[in-house]
Measured scan of single mutants.
Amino acid sequence: AMEMGLACVVCRQMMVASGNQLVECQECHNLYHRDCHKPQVTDKEANDPRLVWYCARCT
């Protein structure tokens, strides 16, 4: 999947907007926009540098 680069696995886009940054699952290393992931990634989750985030598939 490395050839995908830094794109969201849901929408396949790399564009990021304020409040909709890409977050990386620490287990599978897929990237998700906060708005694309279900459930939506919260501000607290996205902005906490100590948080280890896992996508819905890996939790």
Rank of each mutant, 00 (worst) to 15 (best):
V9E: 05
H37F: 04
D48H: 08
P49M: 09
T59V: 04
C11W: 00
V41E: 03
P49W: 02
V9N: 04
C8S: 01
H33F: 00
L51W: 07
V10A: 09
Y54M: 10
C55D: 02
M15A: 15
E24V: 03
E3P: 02
D43I: 08
R57H: 10
L6M: 15
V41C: 03
M2I: 14
V16S: 12
P39T: 08
V16W: 06
K44N: 15
R12H: 11
Q40Y: 03
C36D: 01
N30Y: 08
V23C: 07
A1W: 05
Q21E: 09
S18W: 03
Q26F: 09
C55N: 02
C58D: 01
L31W: 15
M4P: 11
A7Y: 06
H29E: 05
M4E: 09
Q21R: 12
C58A: 00
A56E: 08
M4T: 14
C25F: 00
C8Q: 01
Y54T: 15
V9K: 03
D35W: 08
M4S: 14
V10N: 05
L22W: 07
H37M: 13
H33C: 12
A7W: 02
L51R: 14
C55M: 00
D48Q: 12
A7G: 06
M2V: 09
C55V: 00
C55G: 00
M2A: 06
D35L: 14
A17H: 12
M4D: 09
L31E: 02
L6F: 08
E3L: 03
Q21L: 09
A56Y: 06
C28W: 00
C11M: 00
R12Y: 04
C8V: 00
G5W: 03
N30G: 13
W53M: 03
Y32W: 14
R57F: 04
Y54G: 05
A1C: 07
R34K: 15
C55A: 01
D43P: 07
N47Y: 04
K44Y: 02
N20R: 10
N47K: 10
E27T: 10
Y54W: 04
V41P: 04
V23M: 11
H33R: 01
V41R: 03
S18C: 06
G19E: 14
N20Q: 15
R50A: 13
M4V: 12
Q26C: 10
D35M: 14
D48M: 08
N20L: 04
D43E: 10
A56T: 09
R57S: 11
V9Y: 06
G5R: 09
K44T: 14
Q13C: 06
C25I: 00
C28D: 02
Y32V: 05
C8A: 00
A46W: 09
P39Q: 02
P49Y: 03
D35A: 14
L6G: 10
V16K: 13
